[in-house]
């Protein structure tokens, strides 16, 4: 079916309007983060006439945003690695173990898809404290791994089940042990599914506010988002600084997203539908 001309015009008008509504706040954030305070108030929407990077310098060097950034990066990468490793090896077991046991564990994992872990926060706080992890970046990693495992097991089990059994038989005859098969056959074949799982978990882990807010106080253990959450209390009048700090937290994700937009959209949507 060829869309008619009026239909095409409506399409462009509606979508362009929405695109403006989406870009407007991001534009406002970016252009003003480079302006001195008086220009922010005088003319909030134009490009800066006098460019300043004071806000960025201030956030990065004078306060601890480089620290926060490192913490967030560490927590996110370690958590993602563990989700993918533990999730894929468990999924391999569930998919190819010929027994009734894994089916039960499968249901046990999947149940976690619909239950927000936030509801168990109080007891999680007790556990984390008992383990001596409270107020450290390490308190967040096991929580994020537990949160990510249901979706990992769900997506990866499906994927591994679809791999032909002959592949595994052939490798077994060649003398590979099961862990070798996992490393040399399963992992390379499920790479697309792994990236879906990684993207689906990357966004909520990097952006999480709830658990850092509850588990972490000490300055040098804070995550980027926790650092941002304290901005308004501390620097109420320094708008250039606030906007720069917000930009520092938003830009890495935006750049990563724009570079891999297709994979992000696929990963986030697929994950959500499966959930």
């Amino acid at each position: 079916m060829k869309p008619s001309l009026p239909y095409k015009i409506v399409t462009y008008v509606v979508l362009t309007l929405w695109a403006l509504i989406v870009i407007f706040p991001l534009w406002t954030l970016m252009v003003n983060s480079f302006k001195p305070k008086r220009d922010i108030f005088k003319d909030p929407f134009s490009l800066p006439t006098e460019v300043t990077v004071d806000g960025y310098l201030n956030a990065w060097t004078d306060s601890n945003f480089s620290f926060y950034f490192r913490n967030s990066f560490f927590i996110t990468t370690v958590s993602l690695f563990l989700i993918l490793f533990l999730g894929s090896i468990a999924a391999y077991s569930i998919a190819k173990w010929r027994s009734k046991i894994p089916g039960l564990f499968y249901i046990y994992f999947i149940a976690g898809l619909m239950i927000p872990l936030r509801l168990g926060t109080i007891n999680l706080l007790q556990t984390i404290k008992a383990m001596g992890l409270l107020d450290t970046v390490f308190s967040l990693i096991p929580v994020y791994v537990a949160m990510g495992l249901p979706i990992a097991v769900f997506v990866l089990t499906d994927f591994i089940r679809a791999l032909p059994d002959e592949l595994f038989e052939a490798a077994k005859i060649d003398g590979a042990n099961r862990f070798g098969i996992y490393l040399k056959i399963v992992i390379p074949l499920i790479r697309p599914a792994l990236s879906t799982v990684a993207i689906f978990n990357l966004i909520p882990i990097w952006n999480d506010l709830w658990f850092p807010l509850i588990f972490i106080r000490t300055e040098d253990q804070r995550t980027l988002i926790l650092g941002i959450s304290l901005l308004f209390g501390q620097y109420q009048s320094n708008w250039t600084y606030i906007l720069s700090a917000l930009a520092i937290s938003a830009v890495p994700v935006l750049v990563l997203y724009l570079a891999f937009a297709k994979q992000f959209i696929k990963g986030l949507t697929a994950g959500a539908v499966k959930g």
Binding site: A90, Y92, G112, L117, I122, N123, L124, A146, L149, V153
Partner: peptide, 16 residues
């Protein structure tokens, strides 16, 4: 193969 995932999931999700 299953135990590590089961442990983390049970201690930090199901149990709480």
């Amino acid at each position: 193969f299953l135990i590590p995932a089961l442990l983390v999931y049970s201690i930090f999700m199901a149990f709480p």
